[in-house]
Computed example of a mutant assay.
Amino acid sequence: MKEYPVQRAAVLKEKPDPNTLVFGKTFTDHMFIMDYTAGQGWHDGRIVPYGPISLEPSAMVFHYAQEVFEGLKAYRNPQGQVQLFRPMENVKRINSSCDRMCIPQLPEEDTLAAIEQLVRLEADWVPSAPGTSLYIRPFIIATTPSLGVHAAHNYIFCIITCPVGAYYAEGINPVKIYVENEDVRAVRGGTGYTKCGGNYAASIRAGERAEENGYAQVLWLDGVHREYIEEVGSMNVMFQIGDTVVTPKLTGSVLPGITRKSCIELMRSWGLKVEERLITAKELFEAGANGTLKEAWGTGTAAVVSPIGEMGWEDKHVVVNAGKIGPLAQRLYDTLTGIQWGTQPDPHNWVIKL
């Protein structure tokens, strides 16, 4: 496996209290960085001290948003080993995002090697308190100093890491969500299936409106018909209707989540019926009204599984499973986190131990 040169930080930071970690606020001592130059390709990958990146004000990322990113975690198992969960899936997905955003794709094996080497170097930063982990953020930005709407000729690929606390510090509390009728997150043919900043920027206004009305998340509808469920907040979403689990199919406007994929594979291995298909808000709320909607939850790297306790849409209101986490969502959460933290067997060989 490829090894990159390392420039160690002269002074190491004090590690934060693992009991008071806040997501995305404290960063480790080092970062990985690699350059792209047209005609030369990706080159000069190296690990350096964490610090500012110098860019010209005309760097194209500032003006045309040519950038992509990923998110994954490193976990410490009960034996003290550090492990990753399906990291190659993240590498493949960032390359899919690159393809859509006209960014040169990364060499997959070398990219995985960079993630692994950086995490090994920062292993002391991986906390061991229950539910804590080291969040890993790979990203690519266009750095060519030029105004004009075209693909850049220069890019930076960077990986930064930060220790994060337990997502559910006080237990899993189901959230209230509201169907957004005005704004849309993405449309088929656009960038909805990528992880690019523009998708998240486009979601902020609706999210703030939902919060003002007492809801925690937005349930997005498709951008063409305004009928079909797509995602919840920045997560994929699943519904148990009768004895079938239904999740929106990947039509090009829904992010192909790695936790989503893992949940589907787990449920099918348990003999459950899972359908990836179009589902309308009308069908969903009718299922809520007639009692066939048993459970609903979001899936994503940060929360793993986020149960949905209440849903609102126009003048309709549905309480799901008496506002409590259901047995299937709980089983998925327990199984996935058990595999990630090494407290349960890994029959699918999803974990890489470092």
Rank of each mutant, 00 (worst) to 15 (best):
W220N: 07
N90L: 00
E170F: 05
D124W: 02
G148R: 08
W125F: 13
D124Q: 12
S133D: 09
Y167H: 13
I115F: 15
Y155K: 03
C102H: 01
I172K: 11
Q105D: 08
Y135C: 08
F139R: 01
T161H: 05
I156W: 03
V149L: 15
S133H: 02
Y215M: 13
R120A: 15
P145Y: 11
E116N: 07
H150P: 00
A210V: 05
E108I: 02
L121P: 12
I103M: 09
I159F: 10
A210G: 04
A151T: 11
R209P: 00
M88S: 13
T111G: 02
G189Y: 04
Y135K: 09
A202K: 08
A202C: 07
T194G: 10
T144D: 15
S133Y: 00
V149M: 14
I115R: 03
L112S: 02
Q105N: 13
G148K: 08
N173S: 13
T143N: 09
I136M: 02
G190Y: 07
N95V: 07
V218T: 15
E180Q: 15
A129V: 04
H153K: 15
V164S: 13
V126E: 06
L219D: 14
T132D: 00
G198T: 09
Q105A: 12
S128K: 05
A206E: 02
T144C: 12
E89I: 00
A210D: 09
D99I: 00
P127V: 00
N90A: 07
L134V: 03
Q105M: 13
D124G: 12
D222C: 10
G131W: 02
S203R: 00
V218W: 11
T191A: 14
C162W: 03
T132P: 02
P174E: 11
Y135D: 08
D110T: 01
T111Y: 00
A123Y: 01
I103R: 05
C98M: 03
V164L: 03
V119I: 14
E89C: 06
V187F: 12
G207N: 15
W220K: 02
E182S: 14
I204Y: 14
Q217T: 06
E182V: 13
Y178C: 14
C102R: 07
P104E: 02
L221K: 05
S97A: 11
G148S: 12
V126D: 06
I141R: 01
V179M: 09
S97E: 04
V218I: 14
I177E: 05
C98K: 01
G207H: 12
A113F: 04
G171T: 05
I160E: 08
I115A: 10
P174A: 10
A202P: 06
V179H: 08
V126G: 11
A123K: 11
A206S: 15
N154T: 13
G214R: 04
R86G: 03
L219C: 15
R185T: 06
E108C: 12
E182R: 11
S96W: 02
C162M: 15
S146T: 07
Y193G: 06
T143R: 06
P127E: 04
E122W: 00
L147H: 11
N181A: 12
A202H: 06
E108F: 08
E170L: 03
E109S: 14
P107Y: 00
V175R: 07
V184T: 12
A186Y: 01
I160A: 11
A114W: 09
L121M: 12
L134T: 01
